[in-house]
Design a protein around this nucleic acid. Structure first.
Lengths: 275, 275
DNA sequence: CGCGTCCGTTGATCAAAGTCAAGGTACGCT
DNA sequence: AGCGTACCTTGACTTTGATCAACGGACGCG
């Protein structure tokens, strides 16, 4: 459990990046977001430690410079704050620099549906491009930072820099393939498999960001996990228990210690699906 | 039931478009596809009746001309033929001109997962952009035609024509939002709701193409519907029965006559979801 | 420090959909 | 025409996970 806590701290540390001055704190989200106190700083892909995971992959230094000029600011976001809301016009895409975000929709019957969780290096707001307004809302489940990318300017730059264009298309396409995996999960996996996929996916993403792949601190509740995986919160809880009893995990509420990552990954593949 | 058959015939008619000469029949898919006899013709967006649904939306006539130059051919595809296979490198995207297509993946445990069904005006192969090779296979469930769009050339043209760029990005983004709807469906709807969504979606798409929104001829088996919706084929069959007993449908195997579209659409929204 | 709230756990019960099995129907092929 | 196969339907039974309910621990706040 001490290690789990260490994992947590590590996750939080990603946002520490010394070489930027804070520009004046700014009330960004006006009336509709009374609790917002988003600090903004000049963003820089040049020195961002996520530049090999994010939009700038493969860009030459001068091209990254152009991209930097376009991304005017980096925003600090506190837990519980929204970066955008469903229905609002699309002005920016948001690149996650640090923290942990949830994208969700609320249907007119008032039921929430979580579309995904987003970590460092991932892009939020792509589903808004089709209609020009955000389909989902995005909220921080942990303190973090996002880079604000003006969409129109990005499209213009994308026309100038083929490598950037290619990368942008890749990102859009990968969002599609990721959704296809989730569709497979939702349509044909048992509760146990779903949770195994969920954990191994988180594990891999944390690992990519340089954190422990086995010591996870979950930023979301059991209910949110269940919502995302098509399960009830009780089933999520019981399934965590089951995986713990089988010796695959140590579960201490939101601190998850993966004891047997191999076995978890195998559960992901093996076809004891239903249909 | 006669009307259902009429619907079917109508669907097939879309591929009749008199003003193109058939170029020589061509063995397109070489060794791996022994049954292929794909005839190809010069494609033309200019005169395509789907130009307001497809990639050329909003383009000026001269811009459509440029797009035409790039899309070198239109291919006839017979029922059961593949247009591409998972694992093959991405050379082309395919715009459906007519017919009915299924995109699916087979995981290494041999289980098929259907990602979607594609009708006229829709684009196949978008999930290949991320990795550069096709993630899924695409097969015709009915005779039809597809336009072959060289992806590299498309990216180049997209850089030249902002309107085309915008439209391409919209299409990619809409694929994402469509997948999100399916995720919601898979994660939180009852069998009855799933089928209602499935039918109303098909109905709307047929309608958009100019066909009857109430008289559907399904090109896929119960098993394929179930696979897509996260149900077994038996449940699909029973649920069709239930909807028929409730007076919403007439079901004659694959001929579906929608008796109460309004009611079907309402089932789609109402929140007797589970979690 | 003590209280209240939120979140997670656990148990008992129930229902929806999966599984297994047995026909039935349409359609293509010889 | 007759046969065979693939697909669909229907029934009986089982199972997984949802639902309802009670409780317990952690944390924040007065």
């Amino acid at each position: 459990m001490e290690t789990a806590v260490a994992g947590l701290i590590q996750i939080k540390n990603i946002e520490l990046c010394a070489d930027y001055d804070f520009v004046m704190p700014l009330e960004h989200m006006s009336a509709s977001e009374p609790s917002s106190k988003l600090k903004t700083v000049k963003a820089s892909c040049q020195t961002c430690r996520l530049r090999d995971l994010c939009l700038p992959i493969g860009l030459a230094p001068d091209e990254i410079g152009k991209l930097d000029k376009l991304i005017n600011r980096r925003q600090r976001v506190r837990t519980g704050q929204h970066i955008f809301r469903a229905g609002k016009p699309l002005h920016f895409l948001y690149a996650v620099r640090s923290g942990f975000f949830k994208a969700y929709e609320v249907s007119n019957d008032g039921i929430e549906q979580i579309n995904g969780f987003y970590l460092g290096g991932e892009l939020l707001g792509l589903d808004a491009i089709g209609s020009g307004s955000h389909q989902c809302s995005a909220v921080a489940l942990d303190d973090g930072e996002v880079c604000e990318i003006p969409f129109d300017a990005l499209e213009t730059l994308v026309r100038e820099i083929p490598t950037l264009q290619r990368q942008f298309h890749r990102i859009l396409s990968r969002e599609i393939t990721a959704d296809h995996s989730i569709m497979k999960l939702l349509g044909s996996m048992s509760a146990e498999q779903k949770l195994a996929v969920f954990l191994t996916s988180l594990s891999a993403r944390f690992n990519m960001l340089g954190y422990s792949p086995t010591s996870l601190f979950l930023k979301m509740s059991r209910e949110e996990i269940g919502n995302y995986l098509g399960l009830t919160l009780e089933t999520v809880s019981r399934t965590f228990r089951k995986l713990q009893d089988d010796g695959l995990l140590d579960v201490q509420r939101r601190h998850i210690q993966i004891r047997d990552l191999k076995a978890l990954q195998q559960m992901t593949e093996i076809g004891h699906c239903n249909h």
